[in-house]
Design a protein around this nucleic acid. Sequence first.
DNA 1: GTTATTGCAAATGATTTGCACAAGG
DNA 2: CCTTGTGCAAATCATTTGCAATAAC
Lengths: 164, 164
Amino acid sequence: MDELILAKFNEFVKRRSLRRTTQRDSIVRIVFAKDEHFTAEELFERIHRTESRASRATVYRTISLLVDSGLLREIDLGGEQKTYDPNFLEKPSHNHLVCVDCGKVVEFEDAHIDLLNDCITRRLGFRAIRQSIHIEAGCEQLRLKGRCPNLLATRLSGKRIKKR
Amino acid sequence: MDELILAKFNEFVKRRSLRRTTQRDSIVRIVFAKDEHFTAEELFERIHRTESRASRATVYRTISLLVDSGLLREIDLGGEQKTYDPNFLEKPSHNHLVCVDCGKVVEFEDAHIDLLNDCITRRLGFRAIRQSIHIEAGCEQLRLKGRCPNLLATRLSGKRIKKR
DNA sequence: GTTATTGCAAATGATTTGCACAAGG
DNA sequence: CCTTGTGCAAATCATTTGCAATAAC
């Protein structure tokens, strides 16, 4: 499955008369091996947990290429580092809900929302290109039962929870 | 009108046992004198075009206070500098459409969208706190007539247009 | 007076870049 | 070969912070 993406990427690379390299290949494979969002630094660490090797500079440069190619998207999760989302090929129009209690990011799609946004855009005199919805929300289970199934997992994994 | 906001801010300042200073007063006045979005640097420049004086550090620190107080909101316009929006008091639930042709930012409110987002959030097991929609769009007039009323103005004013 | 605030300059931290060497086609 | 990519270390740039002097209350 991610081999298909790699093929698309290499097509893009060729079209731009760039070169296929071992570093680019392994970075792309690692990016699309999971459906998780990541920062440049997290990707760098993930790479170094494998047998592959690539410098920080190459990681940053390859991320830029992936974004240019349309295979990867930068999303706004409000942190200090940029966050990237590898799931837009599978779900071309998904949005993000971020739980302020546990930091969990939930992806969702909704055709009604998309349609409504399109209407609004047209009414304003524009032609929609891309839209993204960002919802900050609290965990209902935490509020009612005093605990949230994600909260513990998040703490254990040492993930960053949005401050504020 | 902005004197009311200043009063609210000073209330907040007192509640936190902080101090009312000339710098803070003038920064708040300048922030809410217009309904324009701005970056820290742009605010710093605006201040220095008046008779007021405040260091860059104080500008940054006061922006943080304003955000904490809920009077100012950080919004995502995708630039390298953080952007702030002083209009959430007047329009508590507005969203942003950014024109990729001219960089113009249009604010819009829509009750249907808000309701729909609320439903989706609840369905996912969360309780909505805040939501924002970011639409990137092209100018319909530019496409049809080959020119956009905002484009020239934007170029003249030297505003940053979103790259990509 | 005591505590918070300011301004400056230095520190930080993510991302970018120049350059010499290595690798792709 | 000739051109693009890589890794390193240095540069950038927005933002933050330590500290001594200053201003609130």
